[in-house]
Every structure is written in C-alpha cells, then in structure tokens.
Simulated assay, not measured.
Amino acid sequence: MAVADITAHLRRTIISFRNTKRFDTICRINQVRAVSSLAMSNSAASGRSGHQVGDRAPSSTSMLPRSPMHFSRGLASRAHMKYNKRKKEPVDRFGGLDPAQPRLGFEKVKELETANENVKKLFSLDFGTGNDLHNMRRKLSQDSVRDKPDEKDDLAVKIATITEHIRALAPHVENNKKDSVNKVRMLNAIDRRRKMLKYLRKRNYERFERLLVELNLTWSPPPEFYRRKTRRSMEKKATVQEAYAKRSLALKEFETRWRQEQLLEIAHLKEELGKELTEEEQSLLTKSREETAV
C-alpha cells in the first residue's frame, strides 16, 4: 500500500474517531484529572518549600497531556499540502455600501428606530447575505437611472438591472474558471444589454449618453459585418494594405513635385515682369539654372 493511501486511511480513521462523543468525553476527563492532580502536587510542594499565597506557581496548561487529535491534524495537513488551493485575495463584499444601514425592506420599520444597537446590527447589511447586498446595489442603480419614482418597465431600468447582475457574476467567473454555467449566463446577459443599449441609442440618444455616465459604461459600436479569418483573406488584406501604402507614398511625391513646378513657373513669370521674388522662388530658379547648365 502506498504512503498516500496509508495517510488517507489514517486521517479518515482519526477523524471518525475524533467525532465520537466518547472520545471527547475521555479527553476532557483526562484534562480535568491532570489539572487537579497538578494543582494538588503544587499546593503540597509549596507547603513543604514555604511558598506564600502571593508567589507565582508554575503554569499548568503547558503540562497538560496532548490527545492524539493534535498529532493527527499536523500529519494530515502536511500529507495533503500539495492539494490545498492557493490563497485568494480578500474581496470587499460591501463595495462602497454602508454596513450600518438596514437591509432592503427594513428601512421603513419604525420599531428599528427605537430598538437596541444589537438589534439594529442584526438587521443591517453587516449581518446580511450576499443576496441582500446584491439587491441593495440593484436598487441604488435603478434609482440613479429612473426618471419617475415608480418606473419599472423602462429600458434604462432594465439595463441597470442587467448591469448589476453582470457585475455580481464577474468576480465569481474570474475565480472559478471551470464554472461554465455562470460564464454562459454572464455572456448572455452582456449580449442582451448590448442589444438594449443599441435600441436606446437609436430612440433616445440623450438618455443613452446619460445612462453611460451614470452606470460607468463605455460604448463601442459593433462592426457592420463579421468576416471569417482565413489564410487567403489575411494574405489579401496584407496585399491591399501594402498597395495602399505605396499608392499614398507615390501620390505624396507627385503632389510635392507638382507644387515645385507650379512655384517655378510663377517665379519665371515674376522675373519676366520684374517683380520681387521670395526666397523659395529664388532658390528654385537657381537650382533649375544649375540643372540646365549641367
């Protein structure tokens, strides 16, 4: 039998034995007997050696007999250390919410105003579940985009609800890579929100812009069509880009040359009419005469 199998069997045996009431009772009885016998021996020794009441006695907790439970925990943890998951970074579960405020549905209860502080804390977000925090964030985001107080079927309110649902699923999907069900739910919610934003953008552009600011979203319009990437299409795209770059460079050179010819013609006309020439025109005339002389 392998060492890992023996360790696992020993761990299961110790855990099953540790969970029995008889084992716990025996450990407590042994600890009580050890403490009582140690106290009696300390009192007798102090009487013989002349210790007074105010003198410090040796610690009794360090001399207690250890049960097999303490040794088994260290063995099992070391044996299964490689299977332990890595430590995750702590996440702020409140996310900007006040932990002292009451949960959703208890904010209008008059009895909580005169209740004890411990009672108020029991009905606050500090003692609430993750669902309570999600409902509170959803309500706050809905109130921020709602134009009327009791508006529920508005498109902006639906977008705010879907946004909070996506933000609640995002950290879970990031920490649990194999949870494909929630990943598909999040992607479907993102697609549904994109369609709603597209419709709202066409119908009411001002409210669309205000909604993006209030929910801290960014809008990137989708492409007009989707093309499958193949080797032929990628080679064609590279050829078109190279041809466009060469064409742009040739056009730029032609424009520069055409401008210089126009300036040279203007300089010849000015010279014939006896008008004053600029520095650029004078340099062009000098350069053209040198080229013709050569």
Rank of each mutant, 00 (worst) to 15 (best):
L155M: 13
D153V: 07
L169W: 00
H165S: 12
E174V: 14
L155K: 02
A160I: 03
A160G: 09
L155Y: 00
N182H: 08
K177H: 12
H172V: 15
D191E: 15
K177R: 11
N175W: 03
H165Q: 13
H172P: 01
A156L: 13
V157K: 00
N188K: 15
L217G: 00
E164W: 02
V145K: 08
E151K: 07
R146P: 14
T218W: 08
I166N: 02
K152A: 14
L140V: 07
E206T: 04
Q142R: 05
A156E: 06
E206Y: 14
D147E: 12
N216A: 04
N204G: 08
R167T: 08
T163W: 03
I190P: 07
N216P: 06
L217T: 10
N182L: 14
T163D: 14
V145M: 08
V157I: 13
R201H: 02
M196W: 00
L217R: 01
E214Q: 15
T163I: 09
T163Q: 09
A160Q: 03
R192W: 06
L211H: 04
K195M: 08
L212C: 15
A170W: 08
E174H: 10
K195R: 09
N175T: 10
K195W: 03
V157S: 11
R167V: 13
Y205W: 11
E214F: 10
L217D: 09
I162F: 03
R207A: 07
H172Q: 08
K148A: 13
E209P: 07
T163C: 05
L200A: 04
A170V: 11
K202P: 12
R185N: 13
M186K: 02
N182D: 01
K177C: 03
Y199E: 14
V213Q: 05
D179M: 00
H165I: 00
N216L: 10
H172N: 02
R185Q: 13
A170E: 15
Y199C: 05
R207W: 04
E206H: 14
S180H: 12
K148E: 15
S220N: 12
R192Y: 09
L187C: 12
V145P: 09
E164K: 04
A156W: 06
E206W: 11
L200I: 00
E164V: 08
D143P: 13
K198I: 06
T163N: 07
T218M: 11
N216H: 11
D154M: 04
T163G: 01
T161Y: 09
T163M: 05
R185T: 07
P171D: 04
D143R: 02
W219I: 10
R201A: 07
K178W: 09
N216V: 14
K177L: 15
T218P: 01
K158Y: 07
D153R: 00
L211T: 05
V173L: 04
P149N: 03
D147R: 09
H165P: 15
V213P: 00
L140H: 01
T161V: 11
V184K: 13
R193Q: 09
P171F: 10
P149W: 01
F208Y: 05
N188F: 08
I166D: 02
